[in-house]
Design a protein around this nucleic acid. Sequence first.
DNA 1: GAATAGATTGTCT
DNA 2: GACAATCTATTCT
Length: 202
Amino acid sequence: MSGAGLSPVARELFDLPVLVLARRLVGKVLVHETEAGIAAGRIVETEAYRGPEDLAAHSARGRRTKRTEAMFGPPGRAYMFLLYGTSWAFNVVSGREDVPHAVLVRALEPLVGLELMASRRKRAATARELTNGPGKLTQALGIDGAAYGVDLARGKLRLCEGKAGPIGRSPRINIDYAGPWVTRPWRFFEKGNRHVSVAPRI
DNA sequence: GAATAGATTGTCT
DNA sequence: GACAATCTATTCT
């Protein structure tokens, strides 16, 4: 297969406004190499988080802590956080230093290493259930807090070029606490893709 | 298919 | 001590 035609994205990609980056990341391929092998998937769903004004973001109102520190760093790094004690979520940091923006990757379409993903996600009954959610895709690719702050333009965990079909948008998922920001259509997904986590409601 | 409740742990107040 | 950008099993249509 010799790389399956996968080449890393240019670093300049990350130097875009967060809403533009969230849209452009759809179709890109997330690759993770481990001792167990290579696993990779096409990104089919993202969400933009634009602190400090966006109350849905962890960096809302400029909150800068040990947990959110990566969002204040340079773009193109990974921001990882743990949800409900059980699920890791993977984000791509956007915005220059001290601008705490990030893009949450919510779903992938499995491309490489399907068997490896299945062995990591024993609960998944179907191929679709391997990576159709933020916590599921990190489990399938073997990503966790150890990836906090790593450079995504190169390395074991990296983003590679890929293409996407027509892209739709909708409000973000499960941020009911965010007041007026709840309805902002800052979720991007590939239209009609079966691997999108939650069917867009219209 | 849709709705509901319980799990589980690092981080923050 | 409470919470969270979720997942899973269970229950009901």
